[in-house]
Design a binder for these strands. Sequence first.
DNA 1: GTCTATACACGGATAGAC
DNA 2: GTCTATCCGTGTATAGAC
Lengths: 182, 182
Amino acid sequence: MKGKTDRRQEIVQAAKSLFSKKGYSSTSMDEIAEKVGITKASLYYFFESKERIFAEIIEEVLAEIRNYMAMELKICKEHSRPLAEMIDRTISICLKNGIVIRSVDVKMADIHPIIFEKILPALAEAKKNLRQTLACHGVAQSELAAEVLVNSVHAYVLQRKHGIKIASQKEYSQYLASLFAK
Amino acid sequence: MKGKTDRRQEIVQAAKSLFSKKGYSSTSMDEIAEKVGITKASLYYFFESKERIFAEIIEEVLAEIRNYMAMELKICKEHSRPLAEMIDRTISICLKNGIVIRSVDVKMADIHPIIFEKILPALAEAKKNLRQTLACHGVAQSELAAEVLVNSVHAYVLQRKHGIKIASQKEYSQYLASLFAK
DNA sequence: GTCTATACACGGATAGAC
DNA sequence: GTCTATCCGTGTATAGAC
């Protein structure tokens, strides 16, 4: 009925939404299947395991983030734009994806080491791009700044997902920018 | 053989260590029991459920954090001490406990609402004390600052636990202080 | 491709002996 | 208090029909 790629993508979307909210191990294949509107068995037509779905999500998200970060670096080099806007866009991208990938999270998910090793480079490159972009915006100690920024955005997305009261996106990004700018 | 309170405490310690590293739902009662050196069944002599162990850990950690925060607030009001030192001490306390409790984490653990409601006040008070302490140190927008600080320390502890390369505690606390101080 | 049925392992929890 | 044995629900994954 659906194109093969469509279904795959639906599954990835459903799983992404559930993993990001409840965490990898608390999410069952049944829940993913139900969200897609098929049965659990059908998932295994597209993916050989739950871990493989997780790996695909991570690869997909990291690819998008990496592309985005590369673009931000380019923007920063060519024009002079406010840091707050860059952070605001970063939060938007992360909210759209609904999930912020950090190596700790992957380690906590207890994903098979071989899969983990495969995604490490993408993770490292995304972080490197973020660091360079911050440096380009004149942020001091960009390594540590990137660390703080990633964790702040990670927590922001999570809290929004769980309906926990938190500052507006605009307020939050301006605050973070003000921390790094001074 | 052991005093009743001792065993209870051993169980709490083992569970704390495992929950904080692998997360609540990825940790099994068997693992906790093995770490203590008893069987799973024996755990149920002391605790009626896995959730109850979790609740006890949270209560214990929050009590310590709350006391510590109250002390920091007092210190700050009476003497004038560097912010970096306060942050450094906070990280030490969190590393010692091995776990930083945030409401998102409790929500993600999918703990029974009734238990969750019980710990909410302690969570709120700890955060309030942190906010006041930061304000006392002259930190602007202390609400947002507390948010960023908690998440940074949370991530720091987690990364240390998983052996992920990160700045030294001293460097990290000084950096965070420098962000808030300016 | 999607389903029903099922195999199989794991995890939480209890029963009852010692 | 701690154990062995066991119950039972859930979860991943597979077999095989349609």
